[in-house]
């Protein structure tokens, strides 16, 4: 539940390590990629990068060997089939168009961490160990896709693969280094937790969270009861500061506040894994509801069952690149089979 904590910074930092240092064993060789979903997708599926784009970044993925995939019987030839088999509503109206999105971070690091093994291996500029330099971390590397009305899109990938950053980028909250995002209204990240204050009562936090989501004061008052009811919190807790809540209770309140607004595009980062069984079912139902009300839902989770249950489409991200984009069963299968599969 990275997005739910008031300090999503931690999750991003994990991304840095995974991305930038790249010292995990066996990650040096380019991974066999199943296909480039952007390049091979029909026009109705994804926005293709313009050929005259000055940025050649997405190119290497395109022709990556698909040995492994072929072994599993999901070769590039099978991919078109996968895409057409995605069970979904009428693919008429795009809600989000992501076009060659790149997100980079600048990190100031000293000495060895900055020069690291990479530079030695690749023979880049020798760095003075003691000097502090800005290191660019390329967290999202040229991702393109189009989301449609009624889509519930799961995003899978290993820790540090850039899932959370992708979501923040697609939500328009982290500025892209390159590329662009078009969306129907502002996508909402289910991260209202960042605006809440642990010292204040649940009641004040419902008001604060509602305002932070863009509701007016009247709308917050009108929705107050239904938010509290959905959270299932005992009334006596609403007067207590949020720091006295258990993790599950706080998460329930956060989800209830965020889900009270019908978003056209909603993004959820690991939110379903919190709360008790009963609340999980209720939040899954709410997500289905949001999805049916012509919205688009993005869900980042390591809990594959949650994705299978909620989503109709899955994006598999690895090292900031889109490996596969297709129906739930196929992508989850390929993801599980791959050596980058769930830990």
């Amino acid at each position: 539940m990275t997005e739910q904590t008031p300090f999503p910074r931690g999750s991003v930092a994990t991304g840095y390590n995974g991305e930038g240092v790249e010292n995990a064993p066996g990650q040096d060789a380019p991974k066999p990629t199943l296909a480039d979903p952007v390049g091979s997708a029909p026009a109705a599926w994804a926005t293709e990068p313009e050929p005259e784009q000055p940025e050649p970044a997405p190119a290497p993925v395109k022709k990556a060997p698909a040995k492994k995939a072929a072994k599993k019987g999901v070769g590039p030839s099978g991919l078109k089939k996968i895409k057409t088999r995605v069970p979904a509503g009428p693919r008429e109206r795009p809600t989000v168009i992501v076009d060659n999105l790149h997100i980079t971070y600048k990190v100031w690091a000293t000495g060895k961490a900055a020069s690291g093994r990479n530079s030695e291996k690749k023979g880049l500029l020798a760095r003075t160990p003691a000097l502090r330099r800005a290191r660019e971390v390329h967290a999202v590397r040229g991702i393109s896709f189009t989301a449609y009305e009624g889509d519930a899109i799961g995003v899978v990938g290993t820790n540090g693969s850039g899932k959370s950053t992708l979501l923040q980028g697609v939500a328009g909250l982290v500025p892209p280094a390159r590329g662009s995002i078009f969306s129907l209204g502002n996508p909402t990240l289910l991260g209202v937790g960042a605006a809440l204050m642990n010292e204040l009562s649940g009641e004040r936090n419902v008001i604060l969270g509602g305002l932070a989501l863009g509701l007016s004061m009247e709308e917050v008052r009108a929705k107050y009861d239904s938010i509290v009811e959905f959270s299932g919190l005992e009334p006596e807790f609403l007067d207590l500061p949020m720091r006295t809540y258990s993790q599950g209770m706080a998460a329930r309140l956060r989800f209830s506040i965020a889900a009270s607004v019908s978003h056209q595009v909603l993004m959820i980062d690991e939110a379903l894994s919190v709360g008790d069984r009963q609340f999980q079912q209720r939040s899954e139902a709410r997500i289905r509801e949001l999805r049916e009300s012509a919205g688009t839902v993005f869900l980042v989770s390591h809990a594959l069952p949650a994705i299978t249950k909620t989503c109709n489409r899955v994006l598999w991200i690895h090292k900031g690149k889109l490996i596969m984009d297709g129906g739930v069963d196929e992508v989850i299968q390929a993801y599980t089979d791959s050596e980058n599969g769930p830990e």
Binding site: T47, E48, P49, E50, Q53, E55, R93, P94, T95, V96, I97, D99, N100, H102, K106, S144, A171, G172, P175, P176, R178, G179, S180, I181, F182, S183, L184, G185, N186, P187
Partner: peptide
């Protein structure tokens, strides 16, 4: 270098922009 304010059109491909305009999507950021 990043002090210079960005405008949203950074790197938007024309095709994506045209398609977005067709469906009434607005560009985020900037």
């Amino acid at each position: 270098t990043s002090i210079l304010p960005i405008r949203p059109e950074t790197g938007a491909s024309q095709r994506a922009a045209a398609r977005a305009a067709q469906y009434g999507l607005v560009q985020l950021g900037g």
